[in-house]
């Protein structure tokens, strides 16, 4: 169970169930759902999942480090509000983005210090910062949307290099960066080790605190970047828009096969988790399924994936 840092990465493991499930749903949707495979719809799915993908990438790191970040959704709202407020005040997009990232980063560092240095449970810490970020967003705006932000954010969001929406391009870039960070740097080994065996990491002389705080700081900074996409999408800042999005991100990560314990998991699994959520929601909307049944389907989907995973794990154990 305990693994030395550095010797952790590639081990032969079966594909997570989510890969098969994503494929199944994608095929089913293209056969059975009229309009699913059209260009505009696939663009939709891409745009809708981009924000979730952005959040889910660093969330995978957080969960691999045996952590959790419940504050991501509230923080995303807050960063969006900050970004929009600065745009209203007449600052340029780069400065506004910088401020948004700075706010996210500061919250991330705060979370990280409380979790790593003070050894407080991540769930508790980030539930506290969820409240603080949510409250700050509401207080700054008095609950109202921030509008009149000028065309900069929206026209950025409307960019589509090679007909791929910019939000998806950025999200895929985030995947690439996170992949390199996780699998090809010492920091990445550190992340696996924090989840696997933090004491061994400390004994090996690695800066465990710095890695651990880094995980949360990256989460915060990425939330700050994601705020630009969110604000561009709505052409306004909104203090409660991203409530609950952290749960979608956590669900995507865990559907992707990352476990809450022992730094176990794979980054691409998360990407499939995000894709499944996006495809299912889109297909149900295209089919015009009643919202109440959509709610039930999401629950069934979650249980289905974890059932499959646990069943295969059991089978694997029975016949090694």
């Amino acid at each position: 169970m305990s693994r030395a840092p550095g010797a952790v990465v590639r081990r032969q493991r079966p594909l997570p169930s989510i890969v098969a499930i994503t494929a199944l749903f994608a095929v089913a949707a293209s056969l059975a759902v009229p309009g699913f495979t059209t260009g505009p719809n696939l663009t939709n799915v891409g745009q809708q999942t981009a924000i979730l993908l952005m959040l889910s990438m660093p969330m995978t790191l957080v969960i691999m480090s045996e952590g959790l970040d419940l504050s991501a959704g509230a923080l995303l709202s807050l960063c969006g509000v900050v970004l929009a407020k600065l745009l209203v005040a007449g600052s340029g997009l780069p400065l506004a983005l910088l401020a948004s990232v700075a706010v996210g980063f500061a919250f991330g560092i705060f979370n990280g210090v409380l979790v790593s240095v003070l050894t407080l449970p991540p769930f508790v810490v980030t539930l506290g910062t969820l409240g603080i970020a949510q409250g700050a967003a509401l207080v700054v705006t008095d609950g109202n949307a921030v509008t009149g932000i000028g065309p900069a954010a929206a026209s950025f969001y409307a960019l589509a290099p090679l007909a791929i929406p910019i939000s998806l391009v950025i999200a895929l870039a985030m995947w690439a960066i996170t992949h390199v960070l996780l699998y090809h740097t010492r920091f990445g080994n550190g992340v696996f080790a924090i989840g696997g065996n933090r004491d061994a990491l400390v004994l090996a002389g690695a800066p465990a605190h710095r890695y651990h705080i880094g995980v949360y700081a990256i989460m915060g900074a990425v939330v700050g970047i994601t705020a630009l996409l969110l604000v561009g999408r709505m052409n306004s800042g909104h203090p409660t828009v991203a409530i609950g999005m952290e749960f979608d991100a956590i669900a995507a990560v865990v559907l992707g096969g990352t476990a809450f314990e022992r730094g176990d998991g794979r980054l691409y699994g998360t990407v499939f988790g995000v894709a499944t959520i996006g495809i299912v929601r889109n297909a149900l909307n295209l089919l015009g399924i009643e919202s109440s049944m959509q709610v039930v389907s999401i629950g069934v989907l979650v249980l289905l994936v974890i059932l499959l995973d646990s069943w295969r794990k059991e089978k694997g154990r029975a016949a090694p």
Binding site: G35, T38, P40, N41, N44, Q47, Q48, I51, L230, R233, M234, V241, A242, M245, R281, N282, N285, L286
Partner: peptide, 12 residues
């Protein structure tokens, strides 16, 4: 956020 996705999907 959900309403935005729904209106986009309905557009398709």
């Amino acid at each position: 956020a959900e309403q935005l996705s729904q209106i986009e999907d309905v557009t398709v």
